[in-house]
Design a protein around this nucleic acid. Structure first.
Length: 598
DNA sequence: GCCGTTTTCGGCCCGACTGTTTTCAGTCG
């Protein structure tokens, strides 16, 4: 690595910064593994929780751990005390953590993986290891088949079947389900629950309500007098693949989302006076709720899914906002309930961006490159949504697979966009481009052509992967593009596709710093496959004073529906409407473009 | 292992469901 650094001085900075994000991620994984192993080992649960909390902090942080360690201020991070700080220091110095080494010497590699199987927790994992020497899924399958598992104390036929089903479920599920797949399913189920006789209120809760980019399962709540009947009817819904639990207040089923994978849906029936408390409780996150209950305990109250209680008296429960109010807190928007600072005394939520604040879309494709609709069709669809402006940003010449426009075609395309703008009243159509950032860091169009555009988004599509022989890293290419005065925004900065393609190896801290310095905006690509920037990156960008944009990168008129996912993600990043360029008027937008160019 | 509007020690969120129990432990969210 140093050799590359010598040849390309910028690379040294990049490699060092890259290393720092890697250290956080590696340590987060190491602490998570320590927690899993301790749990199987039967350690104190609060100690286990401490490691999990530390892991989460390290996952979220954009701080330079080595620098904090050098200053002796690692303990300023939440959940990092003296002991954890020492372990972080040890890892920075040696690449090892004693606690982990010791646990791994005693417990086989495959045990933490067994915790992923639904129905199998730490106690049972420990038991099958001790009694049957099961160290992984294959060995577990063998003892199920041989009948040895069912002979263990505490394992009856039903338990064994549940574990076998759990293995099947684990292997059939593709991990977490993207927001854009899960939400329509949840909305459909919630609508059907709402139509059942006796059901009064229905809400989607859980990570879906918080707008997480991927979700583990769907949580739905309703109120009704006869819970058992509702759960029975729910379990019998069309499309239900398997029934996992079927009680008097809770039902749990799976549905198929494609031929290979299933998604779990939980329905809970709660009393009407508890609906707000239940909604709060089941929206989570778990970490947010723990903090909330601690606040209640400090006031000598008790908070659970039935309400906020002073002794036996319920003092709030019917409405969610009453619970926060009683606790002396503003009602935290669901998207921010992650225990990432929402309990700070100066936290404000009033101005978070909403869907109705969006006045335009600054990244749309047409039939000129790889879109499916014309300039006019896209403009009319945007106008129908009440938008004031859009920017047509077709691909540049190197994007051959996307029918990118040659210089000559681009010249004509600009004229066509301007003609459409003259023709259609009530919306302004900006002539833009999504110009490729080439592997050498230059742009795919010459300056004089970019100067003719109203709006320029620059994106990386080529050579996204790692290659030792590549002269410029994605970070260096992005930084180089931001130096161009015509580049107003970087499109889908990391290039990730959720569950499909890993993000590029991008040093976000460096990109954010350069974006602030060069007055370049960063895109939140709103399609549920991208959501790029993601929530934590948005938080970083906004903290640095960078303006973001919520664009669909739409390839047909229906793409405009995706804007809601971008807005949700922006809210998770704490974006207010003043942080989002396409909440501005056209006049302000033009001013902002000019501010960089001049 | 962390942490402090009661605290530097002694707490640390809370309940449903399931299965295997004969009063409860394990798992899950």
């Amino acid at each position: 690595m140093p050799a590359t650094g010598v040849r390309f001085p910028l690379g040294v900075v990049s490699v060092q910064k890259h290393r720092r994000t890697m250290i956080s991620a590696e340590l987060a994984r190491a602490f998570e593994r320590i927690a899993d192993l301790l749990e199987i080992d039967g350690a104190d649960r609060f100690r286990i929780n401490s490691y999990r909390r530390a892991s989460r902090t390290l996952d979220d942080t954009s701080e330079d751990l080595a620098e904090l360690a050098a200053q002796g201020s690692l303990t300023s991070l939440p959940g990092i005390g003296k002991g954890t700080a020492q372990r972080i220091q040890q890892y920075i110095d040696t690449g090892h953590i004693d606690v982990l080494d010791e646990l791994e010497a005693r417990l086989p590699d495959g045990l933490p993986g067994l915790l992923q199987i639904p129905g199998l927790g730490p106690k049972k994992v420990a038991l099958v290891y001790e009694k049957l020497n099961v160290t992984g899924i294959d060995a577990l399958r063998e003892v199920i088949d041989s009948g040895e598992l069912a002979a263990l104390p505490g394992f009856g036929a039903a338990s064994v079947q549940k574990i076998a089903d759990g293995i099947a479920f684990l292997e059939s599920s593709s991990g977490r389900t993207p927001l854009g797949i899960a939400l329509p399913i949840a909305e459909d189920i919630a609508e059907r629950v709402g139509k059942l006789k006796g059901v009064k209120q229905v809400e989607i809760a859980g990570s879906l309500r918080r707008g997480a980019e991927t979700i583990g399962d769907i949580d739905i709540l309703c109120t009704a007098s006869n819970g058992k009947r509702i759960i029975d009817q729910f379990s019998a819904f069309d499309g239900v693949k398997r029934i996992l639990t079927q009680g008097a207040t809770k039902g749990s089923v799976t549905v198929e989302i494609d031929r290979r994978s299933e998604l779990q849906i939980d329905l809970r029936v709660v009393p009407r006076d508890s609906f707000g408390a239940a909604l709060q409780y089941f929206t989570g996150s778990k970490e947010h709720n723990v903090r909330l209950r601690e606040i209640a305990v400090r006031k000598k109250w008790r908070l659970n899914e039935y309400g906020l209680f002073d002794g036996d008296t319920c003092i709030a429960g019917r409405r969610e906002e009453d619970i926060y109010k009683k606790l002396g807190l503003p009602c935290v928007p669901p998207e921010l309930r992650e225990d990432r600072g929402e309990f700070e005394p100066d936290a404000r939520f009033d101005d978070l961006v909403t869907l109705k604040d969006i006045r335009g879309d600054l990244h749309m494709h047409t039939t000129a490159s790889d879109g499916r609709c014309t300039i006019e069709e896209m403009a009319l669809a945007a106008k129908a949504r009440g938008y004031q402006y859009i920017a047509i940003c077709d691909h540049s010449k190197s994007a051959t697979i996307a029918n990118g426009l040659s210089i000559a075609r681009m010249e004509k395309h600009i004229a066509a966009v301007k003609a459409a703008n003259d023709k259609i009243a009530g919306i302004t159509i900006l002539a833009g481009t999504e110009v490729d950032i080439l592997p050498d860091g230059t742009l795919d169009y010459p300056e004089d052509l970019l100067a003719k555009c109203d709006w320029v988004v620059a994106s990386i599509h080529l050579a996204m992967g790692k290659s030792a022989s590549r002269k410029m890293s994605p970070t260096q290419r992005t930084l180089a593009a931001m130096e161009n005065r015509y580049v107003s925004m970087i499109g889908h900065p990391t290039g990730r596709l959720i569950n499909t393609r890993e993000p590029m190896d991008l040093d976000m801290a460096a990109v954010v710093e350069a974006a602030a310095r060069t007055k370049t905006m960063l895109e939140i690509s709103a399609g549920w496959q991208r959501l790029d920037l993601k929530d934590t990156h948005i938080r970083q960008a906004i903290a640095a004073g960078v303006t973001v944009g919520i664009n669909t990168d739409g390839h047909h008129t229906g793409s405009l529906d995706q804007t809601r996912f971008g807005v949700t993600t922006a809210r998770r990043g704490g974006a207010t409407k003043k942080d989002v360029i396409n909440c501005c008027t056209l006049a302000t937008l033009r001013k902002r473009i000019g501010r960089k160019q001049n």
